[in-house]
Simulated scan of single mutants.
Amino acid sequence: MLKQFASHPWVRKLTPSPFTLILLILIVYFWFRPPAWVSDEDRPVANVAITTTDGRVIPLASLRGKVVVVNFWATWCPYCRHEMPGMQAFYRDWHAKGVEILALSIEDDPKLVAQFMQQQAYTFPAGLADAATQQAFGEIKKVPMSFVIDKKGVIRHKISGQVYYGRLENLVTPLLKE
């Protein structure tokens, strides 16, 4: 019966070619795990102050002694939204070990960012990336973009694209041992 069903011409039209299947698999893969390029950096970060959505001011210099992940993002960016749960899990697991995450939105509305963070129950600090902050890290031309800063305040890695838990773990662990 199944063989008879599969021999109908309209069923054969719906059967994808191997090329189409490979293309669909690649699209799904890159949607859920788009490529991110990691470059090694070795430059001190300027001491900018981040104002969080709850009104706290965090000077980057006050975070010396911790490994800091600074993530530039936007609420409208699908890749940014997709990486946030992994960042939250990483923050939950690594914050007590000396890791801080700062999520800096390139948007202009702090209420929008605060509302998004609250709705999603993200607990790491978030704020807006003003011009001075963006300049301190170099031009932020696209999001998501993240920077990993060592305990001494030196930018060690730049991640252009979506981060995920395993990549953060691989980049942060050696810096915690230094």
Results as ranks from 00 to 15, higher is better:
1 M>L: 12
3 K>N: 15
4 Q>F: 13
5 F>P: 01
12 R>C: 00
13 K>Y: 12
15 T>R: 12
17 S>L: 06
18 P>K: 15
19 F>R: 10
24 L>Y: 06
24 L>C: 14
25 I>C: 12
26 L>A: 12
26 L>Y: 02
27 I>W: 07
27 I>G: 10
28 V>K: 03
29 Y>K: 13
29 Y>E: 09
29 Y>M: 09
30 F>D: 13
31 W>T: 14
34 P>K: 04
35 P>Y: 12
37 W>F: 13
37 W>V: 14
39 S>P: 06
39 S>D: 11
39 S>V: 15
40 D>F: 06
40 D>H: 06
42 D>Q: 09
43 R>N: 08
44 P>I: 07
45 V>W: 05
47 N>V: 02
48 V>P: 00
49 A>E: 04
50 I>V: 15
51 T>R: 09
52 T>F: 03
52 T>L: 02
53 T>W: 02
53 T>I: 08
55 G>L: 03
57 V>Y: 03
58 I>D: 04
59 P>A: 05
60 L>E: 00
60 L>H: 01
61 A>N: 14
61 A>S: 15
61 A>V: 11
61 A>F: 07
62 S>P: 04
62 S>H: 01
62 S>R: 05
62 S>A: 14
62 S>C: 00
63 L>R: 07
64 R>E: 07
64 R>H: 07
65 G>H: 12
71 N>A: 06
73 W>S: 10
73 W>L: 04
73 W>A: 08
74 A>W: 07
75 T>H: 06
75 T>F: 12
75 T>M: 06
76 W>K: 00
78 P>K: 05
81 R>G: 05
81 R>Y: 03
82 H>F: 06
83 E>Y: 00
83 E>I: 01
85 P>M: 08
87 M>E: 10
88 Q>W: 07
91 Y>V: 02
91 Y>A: 09
92 R>V: 14
93 D>W: 09
93 D>P: 03
100 E>F: 00
102 L>C: 11
102 L>K: 06
103 A>D: 10
104 L>F: 11
105 S>W: 12
105 S>M: 11
106 I>V: 15
108 D>G: 14
109 D>S: 14
112 L>G: 00
112 L>M: 13
114 A>F: 03
116 F>R: 02
118 Q>T: 15
118 Q>L: 02
119 Q>K: 15
123 T>M: 05
123 T>E: 15
126 A>W: 07
127 G>V: 02
130 D>P: 09
131 A>V: 14
133 T>W: 08
134 Q>S: 12
136 A>T: 08
136 A>E: 06
137 F>T: 01
137 F>W: 07
138 G>N: 13
140 I>C: 10
140 I>L: 09
140 I>Y: 12
143 V>H: 09
144 P>W: 02
145 M>L: 12
147 F>V: 00
148 V>I: 15
152 K>I: 01
155 I>Q: 07
157 H>S: 01
159 I>D: 02
162 Q>V: 03
162 Q>T: 10
162 Q>I: 04
162 Q>G: 01
163 V>N: 03
163 V>E: 02
163 V>Y: 00
164 Y>D: 15
166 G>N: 06
169 E>G: 00
171 L>V: 11
177 K>I: 05
